[in-house]
């Protein structure tokens, strides 16, 4: 990889200052996607700003919201007793990201900021209707994702934590790419008193999206059969050597039903 300066600031303000002052500086969270990108020489940062010294990890429950620090590792989310009890879909999702060694380093904030179209977490954030807190503002999930590898974050803006409302029921089902093990289709479903939200990752050229037709049907009847007849058009879905857009469209139906069956 290209060489760069490494900094590990001790405060959020310092980190923001470095990242805002240098358009070529990049933030390093867990690095499980970013470091491979650097190794492929696809990115040439001047400075890599390690966020590990900012005290941004931890999981807290207050009322009907779970707050997850941006630097919380996947492994900690997967094994956290509160998350397992209150948002089991999220704990399960975290346990399916990468492999155990990757889960020991990768972070939720890093994954969300990267918004890989095949990453798992964007579906949880969107289905749960969570909120991103940054060094300067809060961003609702529905406003955060803006197409693959694109988010509402400004240059130098750092995610500090993620607020996730606790649903009545939740589940995540993942159909993995046999090579990379990323999601070909990942479905997160969350049932709230106010209705059901269902988000799909891996499938669309535009990144994670909510399947509103399924949400409407599930809000009326939270059962797999409620969405059995819903056909997702292949237009706008990804097609690659592993799965055509048509196959992905079909899988959205199958995997969604399985997610609902698991949550129900």
């Amino acid at each position: 990889m290209y060489d760069f300066a490494y900094q590990k600031p001790g405060s959020l303000a310092d980190a923001v200052s470095v990242l805002s002052g240098d358009m070529e500086a990049k933030a390093l969270a867990g690095g499980q996607t970013f470091i491979p990108v650097l190794k492929q020489r696809l990115n040439k940062p001047s400075t890599v700003v390690d966020l590990a010294g900012l005290g941004l990890s931890g999981i807290t429950v207050s009322g009907d919201v779970i707050t997850i620090g941006a630097m919380t590792r996947h492994a900690d989310i997967a094994s956290n007793a509160d998350i397992k009890a209150k948002i089991p879909g999220l704990a399960h999702q975290a346990s399916l990201i990468g492999d155990e060694a990757v889960r020991h380093r990768g972070t939720m904030g890093g994954s969300l900021a990267n918004n890989d179209p095949a990453a798992c977490y964007p579906s949880a954030l969107l289905a749960l209707g969570g909120t991103i807190k940054t060094d300067r503002r809060t961003i609702a999930a529905d406003d955060f994702f803006q197409g693959m590898f694109t988010t509402a974050l400004d240059q130098g803006e750092i995610i500090t934590s993620i607020d996730l409302p606790i649903p009545e029921k939740s589940a995540y089902e993942k159909f993995r790419n046999p090579a990379s093990r990323y999601a070909i289709v990942g479905v997160f479903v969350a049932k709230f008193a106010s209705g059901v939200r269902l988000a799909i990752t891996g499938a669309s050229q535009g990144g994670v999206f909510r399947h509103t037709e399924m949400e409407k049907a599930l809000s009326a009847n939270f059962a797999p059969d409620a969405i059995a007849g819903i056909v997702t058009p292949a237009d706008g879905l990804n097609g690659d050597i592993h799965a055509s857009a048509e196959y992905r469209a079909h899988l959205i139906g199958v995997i969604s039903k399985r997610a609902v069956a698991k949550a129900a």
Binding site: Y6, G31, I35, D50, A52, A101
Partner: peptide
């Protein structure tokens, strides 16, 4: 894979400086 503070980690996906 090596252990960092007791946990398995891919040492090819970790900067040396992160392990300070």
């Amino acid at each position: 894979v090596v252990h960092i503070d007791g946990m398995s980690v891919k040492s090819c996906t970790q900067l040396a400086l992160q392990a300070d």
